[in-house]
Design a binder for these strands. Sequence first.
DNA 1: CGGTTAATTGAGATAGATCAACATATGTGG
DNA 2: CCACATATGTTGATCTATCTCAATTAACCG
Lengths: 267, 267
Amino acid sequence: MVEDKVDRAEFRLLRRAPGPDVTLPSCQSGMLAVGNKAELCMTCAVRHLSICSALEGPALERFAAAVHIMSLDAQAPIFDEGEPATAVFNVKEGAVRLYKLLADGRRQIVGFLFEGDFLGLSGVRGGNYAYSAETVVPSHICRLQRSAIDGFLHEFPKMERQLLDIAAAELAAAEEQMLLLGRKTARERLASFLLKLSERAVRRGKPADPVSIPMSRTDIADFLGLTTETVSRTMTQLKRERLITLLPGAAIAISDRDALQAASEGD
Amino acid sequence: MVEDKVDRAEFRLLRRAPGPDVTLPSCQSGMLAVGNKAELCMTCAVRHLSICSALEGPALERFAAAVHIMSLDAQAPIFDEGEPATAVFNVKEGAVRLYKLLADGRRQIVGFLFEGDFLGLSGVRGGNYAYSAETVVPSHICRLQRSAIDGFLHEFPKMERQLLDIAAAELAAAEEQMLLLGRKTARERLASFLLKLSERAVRRGKPADPVSIPMSRTDIADFLGLTTETVSRTMTQLKRERLITLLPGAAIAISDRDALQAASEGD
DNA sequence: CGGTTAATTGAGATAGATCAACATATGTGG
DNA sequence: CCACATATGTTGATCTATCTCAATTAACCG
């Protein structure tokens, strides 16, 4: 526990040690065996949330044929920062964290992904992933060769435009996160985080109020630029002031949304 | 000076006070009078750096016809966060800062733009600008109605793809900035900042070594999530250790690039 | 060249980090 | 199904990097 940071850096080196190219993580937890692959996308519960919604009918069937669904355990690597960006992904179910590491193991989580979120095109620098990706909980992730998606983008300008919109939205979110990291207090950061999680849950068609918090305190800390201890203390503080209620099963009830909103902007 | 933050917040409110829509800043410092508008883009010194490079011949002439060049003083507003995003911009000459404010005046600069940099499509949330933009030094900024650029994007997929690449690069930069803001020390932040400025100068065809620093210490502080005092002290520290030399005229010589690189990653 | 603004330097305060128990889940094999 | 083992979360007591407040100095500009 004391050696946490060093462990993280060493672990990273270990993972990279084997050779220049690592086996694809798709093999690590097994692939779903599916009879009719087309069904995959046609009946996908999160299609309306993702770029796949730009396709219909035969195009969607062709798309489905190129997609592989990976079933991953919790804490499973998807790809590493610096690897050639040969595939793109879509989260079908579960949660993913994207992060960057410093040499000494300090970690910054640059984003969390949930059902319907797209991954692997934006945030790529010079053909390589700009961050690492891991599952937070057991997840189903759709995987598609980059070459394949490039073809679809070329063929369906609507999809490309949608991707541009996604990139613009991600950028706006990134800028908000910069404001949070550069200028907000711990209390403001946590309040902002909880509200944002709630908003995102709503966009996915889930209830706004009991927010599910699938990630650990350490993940939250590394996302908010804090330590676990500060996250824990601040959580307790918000609880004590009755802005939130900690529920069993990694969920949080927002007891006073207005007050939490106020707390997120600096009282 | 003591009331700096409050001033900033009040100033912002004042600027917004007049009415629902503010006069376009293009009128504030005058427009360049140009005989042959087509010449504007055809002979533009930074065309190869910007999205305009996707167009040639007649298409470029049509593009030029739709472009207005604004000549702005230093510290001139370009647009405000929350305004409808009715135009896109390209920096022809000068420097621009993009920033977000909190209600009490705390400011986070989310990016600096230089010659050739594009502005106004990515980072837009729901049709409104996600941040405010101001010039840092006297600048020439190309302005184009959003509806016009949409037409070109539709007509020239090459331009749209280029925009997607730009957005991806911006996102990668934003993620790196999150790592800086969330996990780096003041020393690491400043070293990273100076190196990045140097890299960007090179990409614009300028020398890597005496880096021009057009922005104030306050701007640097608000970009790095620090205070002016800390920026100043850290600058002095790097100078004392002979990693950099402060030159007259807002320039900095990188005396020991390797050491500065090391300092940017945590010694 | 004086006046104004920006940058630097110093002294002291503090939010959040670090170090250290302790508590509470989570899981595992008997 | 319980008792132990391990990971995760909470709480407490310090410590410190950076902020804040306060001068002082340097740069810029008409």
